[in-house]
């Protein structure tokens, strides 16, 4: 990647010779992959709902599929953002909704119930990945009740605050005197 970035560098500016370790962990990469998958699936559901319902033998549910598409896109964008953990949990919730919707179509008279079973299997697998990624990308901010270091002695005024205030007052008094 950096070989490309070196090409666009202004002549004379430092170029990368050897890359250091990335801050990205495998779980961050998984979150990113799931985010793009979510966006892709959402686009398909939104723009080609009939293809989806036909494949699943669930004709007449195009509006629902389209709504699920919007949900997938939003969850995908969230998973790709700084707030990826929230996005991944949104995906876990979405997987539940997907499974419920698929189960409702798993009836004896559905000629495509084999496809539904396959889709359920996929949703189960993806849900496991989503859950794993959501667990592993928990924000590392300390909890609100965590013990924190306090800095009550760091005034920044070597001569003390009162001395700073007094000096300021003297300057203000001089300025006022100068104006009158």
């Amino acid at each position: 990647m950096f070989h490309f970035s070196n090409i666009v560098r202004t002549k004379g500016d430092p170029k990368i010779l050897a890359g250091g370790p990335s801050l990205k962990r495998p779980e961050d990469r998984l979150a990113r992959a799931l985010g793009w998958f979510s966006v892709g699936l959402g686009v398909v559901e939104f723009f080609a709902p009939r293809r989806v319902t036909e494949t699943l033998g669930m004709e007449g549910h195009e509006t629902l599929v389209r709504a699920f598409g919007v949900r997938e896109i939003l969850a995908g964008i969230m998973s790709l953002s700084v707030e990826k953990n929230a996005g991944l949990w949104a995906r876990v919730g979405g997987d539940g909704l997907d499974a419920a919707a698929l189960l409702s179509g798993l009836t004896a008279d559905n000629p495509k119930k084999g496809n539904i079973a396959l889709a359920l299997l996929m949703v189960g697998g993806i849900a496991m990945l989503d859950y794993r990624a959501a667990q592993d990308t928990k924000p590392r901010r300390p909890p609100r009740d965590a013990r924190r270091k306090l800095y009550p002695n760091r005034s920044g005024f070597p001569k003390g605050i009162e001395s700073a205030r007094t000096a300021a007052k003297q300057i203000a008094a001089h300025a006022t005197a100068g104006r009158t």
Partner: peptide, 22 residues
Amino acid sequence: KALVWHGKEDIRCDTVTDPEIQ
């Protein structure tokens, strides 16, 4: 050595060429 931006939440300590008078 320099801290180099590689993308969102990805800063690395890379080895880069020394700067030159331009």
